[in-house]
């Protein structure tokens, strides 16, 4: 049982790390600010979620898990707010999104 939990938690940590790196690559590769915003949200949602989930599985039903859940919930509420504020400020600052068609 413990082995199974460990295995799942390692899978979560590894795939979380993969998504985090993918978001970082996207942040560097994408052509303009608005597309980079999407890349950053990959790390902020699934990357963070999987890594914190992996840590939660390591500590089981304890106070540390409660704190991890709090971090996760807070990030899930604040990161879209920050992204929206950024997009709106950029639009306000006369940054023209690169749009196909």
């Amino acid at each position: 049982m413990q082995l199974l939990l460990d295995a799942i938690s390692w899978i979560c940590l590894l795939s979380g790390g993969f998504f985090v790196v993918a978001g970082g690559i996207g942040l560097l590769r994408f052509p303009d600010f608005f597309t980079r915003l999407h890349a950053a949200s990959v790390t902020d949602t699934l990357g963070t979620g999987l890594i914190l989930l992996g840590l939660m599985l390591q500590s089981g039903f304890s106070q540390a898990s409660v704190k991890l859940i709090l971090i996760l919930v807070f990030l899930f509420f604040s990161s879209p707010t920050a992204a929206h504020a950024l997009a709106k400020a950029a639009l306000h600052g006369k940054l023209v999104p690169f749009v196909k068609r």
Partner: peptide, 18 residues
């Protein structure tokens, strides 16, 4: 642009938490 930098710093902060 300055917005790219703010986005990068915000993203950097999330990674610091992790």
């Amino acid at each position: 642009t300055v917005y790219d930098r703010i986005l990068a710093v915000n993203s950097f902060g999330t990674k610091t938490v992790l």
